[in-house]
Design a binder for these strands. Structure first.
Length: 316
DNA sequence: CTCGATCCCTGGACGC
DNA sequence: TGCGTCCAGGGATCGA
């Protein structure tokens, strides 16, 4: 599941693989995850991919009109300017199962290939996403700026003061705050759980009640974990692979995620899993004591037999 | 303002 | 082997 480190890994791979290339044609198949499919077909052909970077869990393929001519990869590497409000970009969110990678044209189309960009060197940039939880949008100018402004701070760059301000501004539980993309951009379920374990904070604790020292520990540990995960090219849970099809290695380092019932590496207590903010939350009941009002007692989920909802047939 | 619930979607795990 | 059921979860949305 692509979170910040996985998206960073893919973005770096694409930066070295396709930056400087020109998009010749766009082929769309299923389009229900695309904001405005017609805009992609209309705007992308002829444009250059100037640069690929990560923004939260999004990849931003920064584009430029054909008239500027192809920039050399070397030239692009020298250019580390942030995206300007007047820029244009293709936003790609990988959702849970999205892949964006270059292929040789003769390679057969993988199942669930929904978008193909033919590049000027004969290769194709293909978007494959079985579940279509991803998102794709072509945005420019004010619309792009507005879209990006919705998001919170980058967890790798956020300062102590800004982190504290953002967390203390709400009465939500810390797990919900870490997952909230308008608070921090890029953190998902795995790295939220890992950081909370490292900082010894219970996921259901109210963010505003965290002591400044706790908060600062959390910020630093989150940052360390994300950097380490980037170094290892992300966590390969389910089928994450980078732009070259290579899986990451950080899943070997998970301390709580996916370890329900196994022993805490610090104290040996069995790792538990509860639902916080609608998401599975893995934690050590001993190292991360429950706040007042939240029971750590084992309530074996009575397996609620929910739904038998009739399939809302909304194919497109 | 914050919450849970529901929905989107498919593949994989699991039980029988 | 095959079928049914459940589950994964990021994000939008809705009602409480």
């Amino acid at each position: 599941m692509p979170e910040l480190p996985e998206v960073e890994t893919v973005a770096r791979g694409l930066q070295s693989a396709v930056a400087g290339r020109r998009i010749l044609t766009v082929t769309l198949r299923k389009t229900d995850f695309i904001d405005d499919p017609a805009a992609l077909e209309r705007e992308l052909p002829g444009r250059h991919i100037v640069r690929v970077e990560r923004f939260g869990k999004f990849m931003l393929l920064q584009l430029a009109a054909a008239t500027t001519g192809p920039a050399s990869a070397y030239e692009l590497a020298e250019n580390s300017q942030p995206i300007e409000p007047s820029a244009e970009a293709l936003l790609v969110h990988l959702g849970m199962t999205g892949h964006l990678a270059p292929h040789f044209a003769e390679q057969p189309l993988a199942k669930h290939t929904h978008v193909t960009f033919v590049l000027d060197d004969g290769r194709e940039l293909r978007y494959v996403d079985a579940r279509r939880f991803g998102r794709m949008a072509y945005l420019s100018g004010a619309a792009l700026a507005t879209e990006l402004e919705r998001f919170g701070a980058d967890p790798l760059l956020v300062t102590r003061e800004e982190f504290a301000k953002r967390v203390h501004a709400s009465r939500s539980r810390i797990k919900a705050l870490l997952l909230d993309q308008t608070v921090l951009r890029g953190v998902g379920n795995i790295y939220a759980d890992e950081a909370l374990w490292k900082a010894r904070i219970h996921p259901a604790k109210i963010g505003a009640r965290l002591a400044p020292a706790e908060l600062e520990t959390l910020r630093k540990e989150l940052r360390k974990i994300l950097l380490k995960a980037i170094e290892l090219r992300g966590s390969s849970i389910s089928d994450f692979v980078d732009a070259r099809g290579i899986p990451g290695d950080y899943q070997q380092h998970h301390k709580v995620y996916g370890r329900e019932g196994e022993k805490c590496f610090r104290c040996g207590t069995k790792i538990r899993r509860i639902i916080v903010a609608g998401r599975s939350s893995h934690f050590c009941p001993h190292c991360q004591p429950a706040p007042r009002g939240v029971s750590n007692a084992r309530r074996h989920s009575g397996r609620k037999t929910k739904r038998n909802r009739p399939r809302a047939t909304s194919k497109r």
